[in-house]
Design a protein around this nucleic acid. Sequence first.
DNA 1: CTCCCCTTGATGACGCGTCAACCTACGATG
DNA 2: CATCGTAGGTTGACGCGTCATCAAGGGGAG
Lengths: 154, 154
Amino acid sequence: MARPPRLDERQRLVWKAYRDLYEALSAVMSEQLLRDAGLSGSEYAVLVELSHSPEGVLRARELCGELGWDRSRLSHLVRRMEQRGLVAREECSEDARGSMVRLTDAGLAAVDDAAPEHSEAIRRCFFNVLTNRELDTLEVVFDRLLDNVTRDGS
Amino acid sequence: MARPPRLDERQRLVWKAYRDLYEALSAVMSEQLLRDAGLSGSEYAVLVELSHSPEGVLRARELCGELGWDRSRLSHLVRRMEQRGLVAREECSEDARGSMVRLTDAGLAAVDDAAPEHSEAIRRCFFNVLTNRELDTLEVVFDRLLDNVTRDGS
DNA sequence: CTCCCCTTGATGACGCGTCAACCTACGATG
DNA sequence: CATCGTAGGTTGACGCGTCATCAAGGGGAG
């Protein structure tokens, strides 16, 4: 197809800014979570999913699906979180292979404690700096790109 | 300030799409690099920086600055890359503490081999799906956000 | 010149995520 | 109901990044 082999200068800068931005946002967010609630980003994500579910219980398979994670990753993380008392493992009544993950009181307290400041940090570092028109564009663009890359990736 | 404690639904979805997109893009890119050139994303980044420098040599400190990395991270990675013959360590003539990292022939070959397909993947998964107006917006927005978050983070 | 403090880089321990191997249980098929 | 393929989950080994610590050189103040 005789495409130019490298990115042009503008594309290179936009791509770098995109990556640098994500790294910087990740760093700020996880530092904030760790400081205010003693949670890692992954732990917070698990707790949020559980707290959004009706009973505070989800099957491991569901959690993996929602978070887009490997089963192994979740298993390791849940083991560590269980040792800290944030979640509890239970047997699955309808499938003897399955494993349920339950939010404990301590886990609920941790996520309730962390959520307001975390949300505020996201607004401060992201949404507050955008105009409505820009947010419209981002919404459309992110969805289209995500669609495109998931089709490309598999 | 009496802000709403949580993100509203739209913000939550945009934030999730933003993060999912980055994760998906990272996965596709590193898989492509590993498959086509046997390089990890970090290794590729180091090789690109070195290949952009006039003599193919940079001080470790410079590399850390360009990449925004910890000294320790670079040191560990360079040691592994040295064992694979991608780079070579040299003493720094003007500062006996310093350490220079030199691109070897094998390293140059690897990055030259990887770059075209990697660039094409970035275009295919990112730039080709954007209109010019959207790219304009992204450029402005990413720069502003990066500026904002680096001011917030420190 | 001589301290003293800071910078530079290397190293080891540790935490987290990925990969491969494994086990158990489900469920379709014969 | 016996079998076989597959899904769900756990575990251990390994790789990479972070953190704390260390050694050693630079560079300024006195």
